[in-house]
Amino acid sequence: MSGPVRRATVPPEAAGRRFDQTLAQMFPEYSRSRLAAWIRDGHARLDGAAVAPRHVVRGGEAVELTPRLAAEVAMAPQPIALDIRYEDADLLVLAKPAGLVVHPGAGNPAGTLQNALLHHDPALAQVPRAGIVHRLDKDTSGLMVVAKSLRAHAALAAMLAAREIHRQYEAVVVGTLVAGGTVDAPLGRHPVDRLRRAVRDGDAGKPAVTHYRVRERYRAHTLLQCNLESGRTHQIRVHLAHIGHPLVGDPLYGGGLRLPRGAAPALVEALKGFRRQALHAERLAFAHPVDGRALAFAAERPADLRALIEALRADAASAAEAR
């Protein structure tokens, strides 16, 4: 099955890059390996001609992409509960719990959000990745938007690339920050550990910008609001660790357990027992991809994050009273 033909123009800044790399930036909703296969099969053309994936573009060429969707989803639907906050014919918004993997991968062949979406609506088998246009890490909770139609999928992917989908996160970090700020540091794969991302300069990194501001300060931790200009893998986790304030509980980038002096047993238990990154996607706002309506959603803190913040507040209040 072929999807609708997608037409675009190679941006001038892509001059000198390979066609497959350029196509991956222009159509981020598709994987690079899938795009390369479509190029080789003649389903992605440059100025009307079939070229090799490594063909170097000059900028300004016309691109014609005909997605092949016959085997986009080859997995079984599974009856996994979904917390759906909004749904219409073109999209749905859901609150993902911590612990749920978004789509199958190495070590997670089933039991994912993608399996759950296929059970919720079997027609999503005809949409790339069952409509998933962005992701949250397994242990990050919060809001996601899912496309239910091809037209919505294409529009949402373009809106993500143009930074027109506004995502706001809440994070608890190690250490006390005096004020908010911005981390502008390119991200790429870690040079040694394939599971990690890292700040990388040059061609190894892609632009990434995270804005953060202080909401509450505790004795040895800080509650932050984070807003993204880009959506790189592990972006908030890497950026905050990069400035010396990793997320509480982060197994990949965390700085280990940190307890304020004389911490109450309740706080010690809360910090030791929090075994995921303390990150929650709390707000999501965008224009409806079909009718243009302004949509905005908020997701309350999950119970574990709420309990952690309450323990930090209680410890800070107790220490203030003792002074």
Score class of each variant (00 low, 15 high):
residue 278 A to G: 04
residue 172 V to K: 03
residue 181 G to N: 05
residue 195 L to F: 12
residue 229 E to N: 12
residue 208 A to E: 04
residue 196 R to C: 07
residue 264 A to I: 03
residue 172 V to H: 08
residue 179 A to T: 11
residue 243 I to F: 05
residue 201 D to I: 11
residue 181 G to A: 10
residue 272 K to A: 12
residue 185 A to W: 05
residue 242 H to R: 07
residue 258 R to E: 10
residue 231 G to M: 08
residue 225 Q to G: 11
residue 249 G to M: 06
residue 174 V to A: 11
residue 165 I to C: 03
residue 237 R to C: 07
residue 251 P to N: 08
residue 268 V to P: 01
residue 159 M to T: 06
residue 273 G to L: 12
residue 218 Y to G: 04
residue 276 R to W: 09
residue 278 A to W: 00
residue 243 I to Q: 02
residue 189 R to I: 11
residue 166 H to P: 01
residue 230 S to P: 06
residue 256 G to M: 09
residue 244 G to N: 08
residue 210 T to R: 00
residue 232 R to L: 07
residue 157 A to D: 07
residue 238 V to P: 00
residue 195 L to E: 13
residue 254 G to M: 04
residue 220 A to Q: 11
residue 233 T to D: 05
residue 230 S to F: 09
residue 267 L to V: 04
residue 205 G to Q: 10
residue 183 V to I: 15
residue 156 L to M: 09
residue 222 T to G: 05
residue 232 R to A: 11
residue 222 T to K: 03
residue 171 A to G: 06
residue 159 M to R: 14
residue 212 Y to W: 15
residue 177 L to I: 12
residue 222 T to H: 04
residue 164 E to A: 14
residue 259 L to K: 07
residue 223 L to Y: 02
residue 163 R to F: 06
residue 227 N to W: 08
residue 264 A to Q: 14
residue 216 E to K: 14
residue 213 R to P: 01
residue 217 R to S: 13
residue 169 Y to E: 00
residue 278 A to K: 00
residue 173 V to D: 00
residue 273 G to M: 11
residue 263 A to D: 03
residue 195 L to Q: 15
residue 270 A to C: 03
residue 274 F to V: 05
residue 168 Q to S: 14
residue 272 K to C: 14
residue 157 A to V: 13
residue 175 G to K: 13
residue 200 R to I: 14
residue 243 I to N: 00
residue 174 V to F: 01
residue 180 G to K: 11
residue 204 A to V: 07
residue 221 H to F: 07
residue 254 G to E: 03
residue 253 Y to A: 05
residue 178 V to P: 05
residue 268 V to S: 02
residue 241 A to P: 01
residue 176 T to M: 10
residue 216 E to D: 14
residue 207 P to G: 07
residue 232 R to V: 10
residue 262 G to P: 07
residue 235 Q to N: 10
residue 252 L to I: 09
residue 269 E to Y: 05
residue 230 S to C: 11
residue 194 R to F: 12
residue 157 A to L: 08
residue 193 D to R: 15
residue 263 A to P: 02
residue 239 H to Y: 02
residue 273 G to T: 13
residue 211 H to R: 08
residue 173 V to Q: 00
